[in-house]
Design a binder for these strands. Structure first.
Lengths: 221, 221
DNA sequence: TAGATTGTTAATCGATTAACAATC
DNA sequence: TAGATTGTTAATCGATTAACAATC
């Protein structure tokens, strides 16, 4: 019933690409076409389809509109989910801006900061509140996802406020590893680690296994 | 000889935590302590140590200074690597700012944009050049890593310029999946996919397997 | 039909964890 | 010593890929 994390990530990527195809007037797509656009293999696409229980229009590939719908029915919540961004530095602004104008079932309904320069203003189309109002507003606005883009020293305390006030998922962009209660889904991304990883493989290899295999996968198709 | 990607990522995380411990005057650390700080298991720490060929001071845990040095000798390049950020929007500024003041072997030596408001100015301590100068400056400044934070429509062409001019590693923050020649290491991160993944597990589970298992791992130690 | 494409099982690969002998 | 900790092998888990029968 529950899909593997990696599959869910790919579904999200498929959808974006499919929307793009749709806007160009394409109606159907073969597994190897969708694979090529993602630089993955066709088997992987087909296996993901299988896992989500979706099948193709016999002989014509997958119906793009239907597939977009099927992915949406798995990932999206009918009424949408409310999201808060905690910390309105450059990163927080970037995240908020990414959602701007996107027809998404994820609504950034508030941002939070301590800086009086920002509090009360509208950043990227979303009102910025003082962090002191977090507990109250999390409940009032029925926020179920929090995005942490605060300086490291605030990460833990903010995460605690989030989980204490009904947030069910956290995307942690700080460099501080968090530990969540079982009922909260935690996704962490560490930019520094990412670039140090790139540095390692640049240093120790001419490219590294990953990019190597990715490239060959794609060229095989 | 070459370490698994996951191990490399963890080494980067260990190092940051170890530097923190060191600054607090701590000299040695047990595997379970380091594990707890990362919310992973002690076995995983010890296996990573084994893979990097590092051993502990018998009975006193790992020597923090030595371990930091050992991680550095694997990840860092003695003379450092030069990095360019392509696209100085909020995200580009955030990335650049993250490195500001960090004593790192990775030097962001230039940023690039098309906006005449930004070109010629110093952003986050780094000079911004016009994208037209990319080919010339990539070579002149010996840039080996490129960070892509441009709007999606420019992603492919910028990536091509990077690889055509000696860049050996790319960190792609755009939503466009890239395909690299074998000798270029590619790391991609897609913020939208990340948050849609969180949304999926918030919707379909009270937390999801990942956060669940992470929490239990940590509490076991 | 022959060829292209799919859905699915089994095999493989990679990463984590359990188990445990060795050390102090 | 007894207990804590380590390093390493083997087992397990999870994700990708190879193989292939079925469909049109």
């Amino acid at each position: 019933m529950i899909l593997p994390e990696k599959t869910v990530s790919r579904l999200s990527e498929y959808r974006r690409i499919l929307l793009d195809c749709l806007s160009k007037g394409q109606t159907h797509i073969f597994s190897h076409e969708l694979a090529n656009l993602n630089h993955i293999t066709a088997v992987q696409v087909r296996r993901d389809m299988m896992l989500m229980g979706f099948s193709s229009m016999q002989r014509k590939g997958y119906d793009i509109k239907e597939l977009i719908g099927a992915i949406g029915s798995l990932i999206d919540t009918p009424d949408g989910l409310n999201v808060a961004v905690i910390g309105v530095g450059n990163f927080g602004k970037a995240v908020t801006g990414y959602f701007r104008g996107k027809r998404s079932k994820l609504n950034i309904v508030a941002t939070f900061d301590v800086d009086s320069e920002k509090v009360g203003r509208v950043v990227g189309g979303v009102k910025c509140y003082h962090v002191d109002n977090l507990p109250k507003l999390l409940k009032k606005l029925k926020i179920s996802i929090g995005i942490l883009t605060v300086p490291p020293e605030y990460a833990r305390s903010m995460a605690e406020i989030l989980t204490d006030n009904g947030v069910k998922g956290i995307l942690n962009f700080t460099t501080v590893p968090l530990n969540m209660p079982d009922h909260v889904f935690l996704e962490e991304y560490d930019m520094i680690t990412s670039i140090e990883k790139v540095a390692y493989f640049v240093k120790n290899h001419g490219g590294g296994k990953k990019s190597f295999s990715k490239a060959t996968d794609a060229s095989k198709q």
